[in-house]
């Protein structure tokens, strides 16, 4: 070794082991693909009443589509219940604070 410092065989062995250890560490790090999990989502149907403009959100049912007439609404059934939108929302985990009722 050109430098006197590296003449120490124990130090050389230490560097060698360190080198091998780092190689294994980098290999393990790159081979483990850190997968970000998307939070779960739920599909909802947004329904509106054409006469009152009131909106209601319920779980999506197969056969729902935007613009679908679901029935009548309003005080005298003068309006129509129409599917305004269908979309997904993230399901947020219930916050379990002490004393709170949760969702």
């Amino acid at each position: 070794m050109p430098l006197g410092l590296f003449d120490d065989p124990v130090l050389q062995m230490f560097i060698f082991i360190l080198f091998i250890g780092m190689t294994i560490y980098i290999f393990l790090q790159t081979s483990q693909q850190a997968k970000k999990r998307e939070p779960p989502r739920k599909t909802y149907t947004l329904i509106t009443c054409t006469s009152t403009g009131q909106e209601e959100k319920r779980e999506y049912k197969e056969g729902d589509y935007v613009g679908k007439e679901l029935g009548t609404c309003g005080d005298n059934n003068e309006g129509k219940l129409i599917v305004k939108a269908i979309y997904t929302e993230e399901i947020k985990p219930a916050t379990g604070k002490p004393g709170s009722k949760g969702q």
Partner: peptide, 9 residues
């Protein structure tokens, strides 16, 4: 190509 998100609506 997935079900519409609320943000898109």
């Amino acid at each position: 190509i997935l079900t519409m998100k609320k943000e898109i609506y």
